[in-house]
């Protein structure tokens, strides 16, 4: 699949972009994957009151590395305090991320993208979470790994899952970079 998306740019209409139908399908799939990772597991014995105020006393540190990267511990060397904090905050953090991912997915119903500043912010957050998950699947641990993946630019080289994922990762990186540049340009031009 050769991508022919146009980079996001800032102009008279605001922040605009263009994605081919196949690219929109690809992005929708990625966004949906991350949404399903983040959707909290409903437990039958959950106290509805604690759920209502956003507490989750059954929460645990995620065993999946990608999920742990999306929902990191708040303290580097205090697991007990991190868990306690997680009980208070993880649910709303998940909900916020799902909200941004859904907002981006909803914008994929047409080729032309015209984003308000708020939509652009949600898009940049959603693309970032997609990239964090892809990076974990690609085992990107350091700058050298990142460079190695970045070198994969030719879609005719996509012959296995890993090279395909690398190309998808590079596409989302390119898209996010152009979006952030457009957002910066729009911030610069504000009075």
């Amino acid at each position: 699949m050769a991508h022919v998306a146009k980079a996001f740019k800032y102009g008279l209409k605001g922040i605009t972009g263009y994605l081919e139908p196949a690219e929109r399908e690809l992005l929708r799939g990625l966004l949906d994957d991350v949404i399903s990772m983040l959707e909290p597991q409903l437990s039958s014995n959950e106290d509805p009151l604690t759920a209502m105020i956003g507490l989750d006393m059954n929460v645990k540190e995620p065993s999946d590395r990608a999920l742990l990267r999306l929902l990191p511990n708040v303290m580097k060397s205090d697991d007990a305090a991190s868990l306690e904090f997680r009980q208070l905050t993880e649910r709303s953090l998940r909900e916020g991320k799902i909200g941004a991912l859904r907002a981006a997915a909803m914008g994929l119903d047409r080729n032309e993208l015209v984003l308000t500043p708020e939509e652009a912010k949600l898009w940049s957050m959603a693309l970032n979470d997609v990239r964090l998950v892809l990076a974990e699947r690609l085992d990107i641990r350091d700058e050298a790994d990142a460079d190695h993946v970045h070198a994969m630019q030719d879609w005719s080289q996509a012959e296995d899952v890993e090279s395909y994922l690398a190309l998808v990762y590079n596409f989302t990186t390119w898209l996010q970079e152009s979006l952030v540049q457009a957002m910066m340009a729009s911030m610069d031009r504000k009075p």
């Binding site: 990267r69 999306l70 511990n73 708040v74 904090f85 957050m125």
Partner: peptide, 18 residues
């Protein structure tokens, strides 16, 4: 700073408090 950390996690940045 805990509130900031959650906000950073929302953006996908890896943040901790100490």
């Amino acid at each position: 700073v805990e509130q900031h950390a959650v906000a950073m996690h929302g953006y996908g940045l890896w943040a901790t408090v100490e």
